[in-house]
Nucleic acid binder design. Sequence first.
DNA 1: CTTGCTGCAAAGCCTTTGCACCTTA
DNA 2: TAAGGTGCAAAGGCTTTGCAGCAAG
Lengths: 133, 133
Amino acid sequence: MAKTRNTKQKAAVLAAVKRAKHHPDAKWVYEQVSREIPNISLGTVYRALASLSAEGLIREYRQADGPALYDPNIDDHLHIHCSVCGRIEDVPPVEIPQDVLESVRRASAFAKVDRVHLEFHGLCSACAAETAT
Amino acid sequence: MAKTRNTKQKAAVLAAVKRAKHHPDAKWVYEQVSREIPNISLGTVYRALASLSAEGLIREYRQADGPALYDPNIDDHLHIHCSVCGRIEDVPPVEIPQDVLESVRRASAFAKVDRVHLEFHGLCSACAAETAT
DNA sequence: CTTGCTGCAAAGCCTTTGCACCTTA
DNA sequence: TAAGGTGCAAAGGCTTTGCAGCAAG
């Protein structure tokens, strides 16, 4: 890995992501960091986010729709999405049994299966309460 | 659902997706259909794909990176991606046990968990053969 | 005839990138 | 002072959309 410098921009981006109480996107981070460094550019935010992800200090979470999200939580975990409001919460990892992976491998004729993407969708309690109304 | 008309454009788009031996994107479909209907527009292809997906005749498969893919196979199934060449193959569905879903629901404090997204990544046999060389 | 569909082109959204200047180590 | 980072703005990839004319039912 190429050596990376400590700049105030990158530090501010890291701090912003780390203090987020959700899974922010680049725009949110940009707005946050702009308060401290008013002339920072969005391009720099993207570059810092990419660099921090590569270093493992944050996690990049690309979604099928919408912008990439950045996750301050680098521990192993999964996500659940509320289908109504879009809220995303962390949940503990779920293990897929080896024999299931093996059957997937056989069904696909792949040489190996090394990664599984698992994500949940549901209805968060806030939206459930509103719906009930 | 609003009633939808049968146009030759839509029929040609459906036929193109159905005869695809892979998971085509809009551009591929556009190129295919252009042979029959040379002046069809890409916008129409997108609209037809959206309409056919809504009708359940094909399946839309949005990826985190790259274009949306359209799947001629509407039976319940999952996908495995080769991390080297990007090839995508279908695999049979994998059931997540109810008690696992329930523990996810509890961990997230969601009212319910109704959908699970599961996808595999690995190394396809063709790429494995090349790597071995 | 009515209303949805089409072709065209423009715009939109998110992200990356080229470049000249600046700053870190 | 060398090399990576920054700001700016432009471009890029993919998709959607406004509009006026066309065609299916």
